[in-house]
Design a protein around this nucleic acid. Structure first.
Length: 485
RNA sequence: GGCCCCAUGGUCAAGUGGUCAAGACACCACCCUUUCACGGUGGUAACAGCAGUUCGAACCUGCUUGGGGUCACCA
C-alpha cells in the first residue's frame, strides 16, 4: 500500500513550530516511503478564519521546502482540498446523516442555556459532559423540530458501557472506558462539521494511510475509533508527536516571542536551520549526525523512533545550528543574505564582501552582523582605558608613543595588504624592542574603538585602506594626548 | 477534579537485562592566535524515589512523587 500523509492546518494565524514539526514529520514519512504528501485546509471555524492566514501556510511550506503533491491548487482526484468547499458540497452532512440512520448519531436541539447548565467547574477548569438528553427524542419529534426550523447539531451516540482501545505507533495501545467518552458534536448548528468529524471523514475519503498529529489530540483519539467503527472504515496508522514546550515545560506560547516559524525568520534564522532543528525535537538519527539537509532527513527519518516525552524548545541550540549553516554556506548564498545587511550598516563600504567575510565565522544569525562591523562606518566613542591591556602589556603612555612612531611607518607603506602590513609592523616591533601585542593592540584600538573586533590590526588596516586608517590613527593620537593633558 | 501521556546531565538525546551510561548545545579549562571568533583538546554534569522479578536492572512489574496534556457548536 502506498503511503499517503497529509498536513491539515487551519488558517488562523502564524504557523506554530509544533505545527511545523507535525508538517515536517508527515512530509518525511511520505517522502521516505516514496509516498504522497497532501495539504488540506481545515477552515471549518468561520469565526477564526482570517484572510492572510492561507498565504502564511503556503509561504511557510515553501520556505521550509515541504512541497506537496496534492492540495487546493494541485488536484489529485480526491478534492476539493478545502473543507469549507467540501462542506458546501454537502459531504459532511451526508455522512452525518448516514450515521443518524444507523443509530450511531442523533439530532440534538439543546439550547445554549441548557448546555450551560450542564457545565461545572472542577479544579479551576470548566468541564461539560452531555447527558444524551436529545437521544430519546422520537423520530416524529425530530421531524417536527426540523420542520419548525429549530437550530440543531448532530451528535455521535457513544456507547456508555465497555471500553475502546486505540492504537498509536508511538504510544502503543490506549484503552479508555466508554463512559468517559462524550457524545461529541459532528455537525455544528451552522452546518459546518467539527474538526473531529471532518478529519475522520476526509482522511478516509482522501485515502490517508498515516495520520500524523500532535500529542494534544491523544486523549481524544479513542473517539475517532468510535467514528471509524460506526462507519465500518479501516482505521489509519496514527502517529502522535510529543509536545514541544518552552523552557518552563509548558506549551510554547506566543508570549515567548519565538513560537512561530515567522517569528524565527524575523529573528534572522534560516529556514533550513529551523527545519533541521525542529526535526531533532522528538527524534534523533541513527548515525548521530545532527546537521542534516532535508534530503538527508528524508533518507534517515524513521517515525518508529519518535520519542514519547515532550521536548523543550532550546533557542540556544537553534542559534548554534543556524551558525553552523551560515559557516557552511557557499559564497554566493552567503553574500546574497549578508551583503544587504552590510550595506545598511556601513553605507558605501569600499569592500562589502570583505566585511561580510569577517562576520561569517562570528555570527549565529544575520541580525548580529551590524554589531560586529558597525565601527567600519565610524569609530564609536570609547574610553582611552581601552588602551590598557595587561596581557598585551600596553599602557596609555606606551600606546601614544607607539602610535606616534607607527604613523610615519604606515604613511610610507606602499603595500597595504594584510600580509605585507603584518610583516611591516612585526619588523617595526622587533626593531624597536616592542612585543608584537604592544604594537598591534594600540593600532587595533585606534582603528576600531572596540575591545573586540573581527580580525586583527593589520586586517583592519587593509579593509579601511590607507587614507582612512591614517586618519583614525591621527585621531587616536589626539584623543590620547587630550586624555594625558 | 476525572481521564490520558511522560520521566537518563541545565537542554536535546543514545540506550531496550551484563556499558567505566554515547553524542550534541550550553558551561569551564587549555591549545591555536595581532584582540574576538572559527577550529582543536580535555573537563564538570544524569538513569526521580521505593519495593519486586532476576545471578545481574536505566532497561521488566507495581506503587509513590513530579511534570505535561485533555475534558468546547476551537482546531
Amino acid at each position: 500500500m502506498k503511503v499517503k500523509t497529509r498536513f491539515a492546518p487551519s488558517p488562523t494565524g502564524r504557523m506554530h513550530v509544533g505545527n511545523l514539526r507535525t508538517a515536517l514529520y508527515a512530509y518525511l514519512i511520505a517522502r521516505h516511503a516514496d509516498g504522497t504528501f497532501m495539504l488540506r485546509i481545515e477552515d471549518t471555524d468561520q469565526e477564526r478564519f482570517y484572510e492572510g492566514a492561507l498565504d502564511i501556510i503556503y509561504r511557510t511550506l515553501e520556505k521550509a521546502g515541504l512541497d506537496f503533491d496534492e492540495g487546493p491548487d494541485k488536484d489529485g482526484g480526491v478534492g476539493p482540498y478545502v473543507q469549507s468547499e467540501r462542506c458546501r458540497a454537502g459531504i459532511y452532512m451526508d455522512y452525518a446523516k448516514k450515521l443518524v440512520e444507523t443509530g450511531h448519531a442523533y439530532y440534538c436541539f439543546c439550547t445554549k442555556e441548557r448546555l450551560e447548565s450542564l457545565r461545572r467547574t472542577v479544579g479551576g477548569k470548566e468541564i461539560s459532559v452531555y447527558d444524551k438528553h436529545c437521544l430519546h427524542l422520537t423520530k416524529e419529534e425530530v421531524e417536527e423540530k426540523l420542520a419548525a426550523g429549530m437550530p440543531y447539531v448532530i451528535r455521535l451516540n457513544a456507547p456508555v458501557e465497555g471500553t475502546t482501545t486505540f492504537h498509536d505507533e508511538i504510544y502503543g495501545d490506549i484503552t479508555v472506558e466508554n463512559a468517559e467518552l462524550d457524545d461529541m458534536i459532528l455537525i455544528k448548528s451552522d452546518g459546518f462539521p467539527t474538526y473531529n468529524f471532518a478529519n475522520v471523514v476526509d482522511d478516509h475519503l482522501m485515502g490517508i494511510t498515516h495520520v500524523v498529529r500532535g500529542n494534544e489530540y491523544l486523549a481524544s483519539s479513542p473517539k475517532y475509533n468510535l467514528l471509524y467503527e460506526a462507519f465500518g472504515w479501516e482505521v489509519p496508522v496514527y502517529v502522535h508527536c510529543p509536545l514541544i514546550t518552552d523552557e518552563n515545560h509548558t506549551k510554547l506560547s506566543k508570549r515567548s516571542g519565538h513560537s512561530s516559524f515567522e517569528d524565527l525568520l524575523d529573528l534572522g534564522l534560516l529556514p533550513e536551520a529551523i527545519v533541521n532543528y525542529v526535526a531533532l525535537l522528538g527524534w534523533s538519527p541513527e548515525d548521530n549526525e545532527e546537521i542534516k539537509s532535508l534530503p538527508e532527513l528524508i533518507r534517515d527519518f524513521d517515525y518508529r523512533k519518535i520519542s514519547k516525552s515532550p521536548a523543550v524548545f532550546d533557542m540556544g541550540k537553534l542559534r548554534w545550528m543556524n551558525g553552523e549553516y551560515i559557516r557552511r554556506m557557499d559564497d554566493a548564498s552567503y553574500y546574497k543574505l549578508a551583503l544587504p545587511v552590510v550595506a545598511e550598516t556601513v553605507p558605501g563600504a569600499r569592500n562589502p564582501e570583505l566585511l561580510a567575510d569577517l562576520a561569517k565565522t562570528r555570527i549565529e544569525t544575520f541580525a548580529e552582523i551590524p554589531e560586529i562591523i558597525d565601527f567600519f562606518a565610524a569609530v564609536p566613542e570609547y574610553d582611552t582605558e581601552m588602551y590598557v591591556h595587561k596581557k598585551m602589556k600596553t599602557t596609555k603612555e606606551l600606546s601614544l608613543t607607539v602610535l606616534g612612531e607607527v604613523l610615519p611607518v604606515l604613511t610610507d607603506a606602499d603595500d597595504f595588504s594584510n600580509d605585507a602590513l603584518f610583516a611591516l609592523l612585526g619588523d617595526f616591533a622587533k626593531a624597536n624592542g616592542y612585543k608584537n601585542g604592544q604594537v598591534m593592540w594600540p593600532v587595533r584600538t585606534a582603528l576600531s574603538g572596540k575591545e573586540k573586533t573581527p580580525g586583527g590590526a593589520t586586517q583592519l588596516l587593509e579593509i579601511l585602506g590607507k587614507e582612512e586608517s591614517l586618519k583614525r590613527i591621527e585621531a587616536a593620537i589626539r584623543k590620547l594626548e587630550e586624555a594625558a593633558a
